[in-house]
Nucleic acid binder design. Sequence first.
DNA 1: ATAAATGTTAAGAA
DNA 2: CTTCTTAACATTTA
Length: 243
Amino acid sequence: MPEGPTIVLVREKLLPLVGKTVQKVAGYESASKRGLRKRKLTGIQTWGKHLLLVFGDRTLRVHFLLFGSLAVNPDTPRRAKLVLHFNAKDSIAFYLCALELIDEPLVDHYDWSIDILSDQWKSAAAVKKIRNKGNTALCDCLMDQTIFSGVGNIIKNESLFRSELHPLARAAQVPAEDLKKLVKEVRRYAKSFLRDKKKGVLEKHWQAYEQEECPRCHIPLQKKILGKSKRRCYYCNNCQERY
DNA sequence: ATAAATGTTAAGAA
DNA sequence: CTTCTTAACATTTA
């Protein structure tokens, strides 16, 4: 389910419910979320992989982890962690996910300049943070949500391939120009991911992720679990600079 | 049937 | 004290 762009699409899907009031809270984890009853959904925001349902001064934070999901007005009933029933027959059901209430202003809680899809995104700050990561492999720098909030394994692999950098290149050894290129590519591909996913053609434009062969030089792509993050890396030993 | 997948956190070990 | 490893969460698809 996740990666930042997917959460942005979930937000768009839920927008028609803004303005409605929660009449009933259900689900096997509803006890701790009873405080949402009678509250009006005043807005929806996202921060990286976080979906933020704003109810005035209280916000429900939803994180879908690896295989979480949600449904609007589900027709086939299924065990849900939380169900928010609104006016009449509108509802949102949350299945596997991490739910949390935030009772402070979101601007104090989140820094949107590190959200790869935000208007406030600051690429120079990301470059600076990577440069301070010493021996950390680029594949781990990219998965660091305090640098790139919203990047997941797909965006990681595609950005590294497209900027021609090896997942095991060490942060401090990569020239600044290359890091700039990488950070720019993360932002560019995240937007592309969003457009493609909306059109249902996300997989068609993958150049490295889950691919067998390098689209540039046509040798087989490497597929290995790398880095501290221990996630799949798809890369070309020929086209991606390791330093 | 079994494994692996767009992820994160917390507890325990080293 | 810090860093690393492991488990837990529990669904869907190949």
